[in-house]
């Protein structure tokens, strides 16, 4: 296990050192990579970043985008920038843990502390200026009794 963690860290370090990536997408990848610590990548079944921006960059940015603007296709991923639903932490905490609509529950891959950190991050980033009010207790309350099970590949 220790050997694996070391090798994963090496891979991430190589990734971060790549100059080509820094030029990708008008500097966006550079921003993301710089925000991310090597150990944020690929713990076994959970996200390992501790800081809110690390957790956001490792997971949430995939759909809500690095700038929190969301995305539009046949359907939408809602913007978090300027999103009034983030004013009180209990709402985003519930959705992060349990999912909503097409958004999968992220409770199974995040610790209580990570949910708190990322909730406060989105409350105070992308121009949002809400009072960060997430608590461990609120996360624990939001967690379902029966955690999500995974299914086999196709």
């Amino acid at each position: 296990m220790r050997q694996m963690k070391q090798s994963l860290t090496t891979a991430a370090a190589i990734l971060l050192a790549l100059p080509a990536l820094a030029q990708d997408d008008s500097g966006r990848a550079e921003t993301m990579a710089a925000d991310r610590q090597p150990t944020d990548l690929f713990a076994d079944d959970t996200i390992t970043g501790e800081e809110g921006h690390e957790v956001y960059g490792a997971v949430c940015a995939g759909c809500h985008m690095p700038d929190g603007q969301g995305a539009v296709g046949a359907g939408n991923y809602p913007a978090l920038a300027g999103n009034p639903n983030l004013e009180f932490a209990s709402y985003p905490i519930y959705i992060i843990v349990n999912g909503q609509g097409n958004m999968p529950p992220l409770g199974p891959v995040m610790s209580d502390e990570q949910v708190v950190a990322v909730t406060e991050y989105i409350q105070t980033s992308f121009g949002n200026d809400y009072e960060p009010d997430a608590t461990i207790e609120a996360v624990q309350t939001a967690r379902p009794a029966d955690p999500d099970a995974t299914t086999g590949e196709h």
């Binding site: 990734l15 079944d45 196709h154």
Partner: peptide, 17 residues
């Protein structure tokens, strides 16, 4: 990949990453 933490993390990367 099929669900799980790794899929989320890859999803958050640019294609080049």
């Amino acid at each position: 990949t099929w669900r799980g933490a790794n899929s989320f993390e890859f999803n958050a990367m640019s294609p080049a990453e």
